[in-house]
Structure formats: C-alpha cells, structure tokens
Design a protein around this nucleic acid. Sequence first.
DNA 1: GCATTTCTGTACTGTATGATACAAAATACG
DNA 2: CGTATTTTGTATCATACAGTACAGAAATGC
Lengths: 210, 210
Amino acid sequence: MLPSVPSAASVAPRRRGRPRQFDADAALDAALRTFWRKGFQATSLDELTAATGLNRPSLYAAFGNKDALYAAAIARYVATIGRAFLIPLAAPVPLAAALRRFFAAVVATTCGAHGPLGCAIACTLPADAGHLPALQRLLAGALAEIDGAVQQRLVAARAAGELPRHADPRVTAQLVVGTMLSLAIRARAGAPRRELTRIASACVALVTSR
Amino acid sequence: MLPSVPSAASVAPRRRGRPRQFDADAALDAALRTFWRKGFQATSLDELTAATGLNRPSLYAAFGNKDALYAAAIARYVATIGRAFLIPLAAPVPLAAALRRFFAAVVATTCGAHGPLGCAIACTLPADAGHLPALQRLLAGALAEIDGAVQQRLVAARAAGELPRHADPRVTAQLVVGTMLSLAIRARAGAPRRELTRIASACVALVTSR
DNA sequence: GCATTTCTGTACTGTATGATACAAAATACG
DNA sequence: CGTATTTTGTATCATACAGTACAGAAATGC
C-alpha cells in the first residue's frame, strides 16, 4: 500500500471558488497504482477515472493531460516508494545489514500482496522511455538519484573500513542498483519471493566480501 | 541489424495457391525492430505494416493478430539476439574473458547505432507482462533460458577451478544476468557506452575474484 | 444578495485503432 | 482450359480512445 504522504497541495490556503471534493495526493496515488501495474500506454483514462474516483474534467484540471499525469505519478513513485527503499540504507548498522534491509524492502514491495507489481522504474518506465524523451529523462533522473544514495552509503562504509579500499563506490553502487532492477523484473516474471531473497543475499555477500 | 536467419517457413514445400510475395522471417524481423523500440502497446498496426511492407490482411494471415505477432517477434528475439549474446560465453577462453565478451555483445546491442534500444526482454516485455499472462510466461521462459546458459558456463568454470568453490553457479548466474538486464535499462535511459562497460567490468571482477 | 470564481458531471467530438469483407490476381491440380 | 486454392490490395467496420463543451453546483468576496 502507498503511504499517504501529504504534499504542498494538501495544505494550500483556501481558494476562491467551489472547493475540491477530492485529495489530489490520494488521487495521484490511485493513478500511480494503475500505471504501476499496466504501464503508461496500456492504461486508459476510463481506468484512471475508475481508480481515482474523479471524472475526466477534474483529472484534467488537476494534472493536465495523460502524459503529465503519468509524469506526476512517476515523480510521486520516486518520492515515496523509491525513497522508502533508501531509508533502510541509512540505518546505523553495518553495511551488510543495511544492504540486506534495503533489498528486503525492495523484495517486499516488488512482490506486493496484490500480485507481482515489480518496480515502476524498472518494469514500465523503460518501455515508453524508448520513444518519449521526457520519460527517458525521468528514467535517467530516477536512476541517478538511487545510484547516488547507494553510493553515498558505500562511501561511508569505505571510510568505516567495511569495504575494500580498491572497491569503487560509484560502480559498486550501480551494481547494487542493477541487482535491484533485476529483482523487480524477476518479480514481474513471477519468480518466487524466496528466489529473489537468495539473489539479494548473494549480491550483499559479493559486495561486502574482501 | 538483425541477422537474416532462415527458419522452417522459408524452406517449406511449394504450396497450392498464389505464392507469398514476402519473406515471413524478414517481415518478423521488421516487426521485431518496431516492437523492440516502442513496446507492444505503443506500436500500432499502421507502424507494423509500414515497417514490414505487408498490408494488414497479409500480416493477419501470416501471424494471426497483434498479440500473436508480438509473441512471435519476442520468440524470434530470444532465438536470434538473445542467443547471440550467449555464443561468446561458450568461447574456449577463461571465464573472465568469456564474461567480458558476453557483456561486450550486450553493450554493443543495447546501445545500437539506431539509438539506445536496450533489450526487448528487459525494457519492453516487463511492462506488458504485468497484465498479459501469456507475456509473463514468455518473460519467465526467456529469463530461465539465459540464466541456464550462464549457469552452465559457471559450472564448467568451477570445475576448471576458475570460480571459488563456495560460489553457487545458479545464483551467481542470476546476478550476472541481472547485471545484463540493468545494463539494458541504463542504455535506454541514455547512459553512455563507457559507463555500461565500466559496470560490466566491475561485475566480471567481482564474480571472478576469490 | 449578487457577482465572480472554481469545481463536478454528463454528454459529446474527432480520431486512431485492431480487425475484416470482398473482389481481383496468381498459382497448382486435373 | 477450367476449377480450386491461396495471397494481395482496397475499402470499410465497430470500437476504444484522449480530450473537451457546457450547464449546473458550491464556495468566496463585496
């Protein structure tokens, strides 16, 4: 389930005309869940109105068109789901334990209770990034953000002597994130949770071994 | 470019009525190139007829409907592109060299001359595997085939003492394939070739180190 | 109270899409 | 040569789609 994180919109000052009868963030979360499962192209506006409970004009007034709604949904994915993956990384525990928690969060989310959703960045965004430049930039930005966060943790780990000195934090972070992306794809292919956990453990062992 | 590998269809015995004026394999390759770039949902039949040079009825008579054509195209991708990745693995060279050749082939293909295509299995198939069970099975099968081939090479490597005895060939293969999938996604995000090569090198170093 | 502003809901528009009907063309069989 | 069989090309169908016009509803400001 998506956490209901309030954003700037929900604390805006009272506006002039008829007030909105919906919460924009909740609607965005509902749209995200639909996009997450079916991707951008396969999701119709009828499905979006059904999922959000809004009618078309309200959706368009709030978010623009379908493209903009998708971009907003992915941005929210990065800000909520993606960032939730990174929180365990910052826990004050040894690197191996932090990485295990990170992967545990990834596996739990990609193998959701509502079927194997995978990861929106790994599984659905790349398909449309091939022909929509705006989405390609979105994908590149999301990857850079996750790479950076993992890299930062690895730099700290190396300073603490938890990583071999010859290991490059940047490329190692990209390998860890790469494993994360592959776990999401495997989840979407229907791989059992146990298998994903085993792969994650092997990645942690390989990265933290010396 | 796709290699023009003949299949059973092109050597079929002379049939009864008016002969076909097209090569089914060439048409399938053309359809695959379009699907590869834009995915299943975003590719229209108009684009497919333009790419293949066939008109709609010929396409439908040869392949069924759009779904079946996509499945056939992905199957051909696995049989040609995917298998081409695996050939370098079987070269009679040490494991590290074989893996380097494998990744070199992956990087060269995912960063094609016609823009960063990525990999059809990694970048476009997962999007529709989320809601089309047939495509989910196709994805799972493709992953299993690549995993198996890499695993087989790792088993041989361990027998030759090129791999630590404590390394599990199966999960190690899944990590290598996972890195491959992530390279394809990064290629589609626009990552420069140099960066992908660096990640691949780090993966090889990590897997073959002891 | 009245004008102004903003949102909601229905109904609609034009278009793009996947799929087919049908007749003409091209081959094999007898 | 005539019939059966398969492919080709055009023209078309019904539907699904993204997006919007418009009228009514609910709030604010004066």
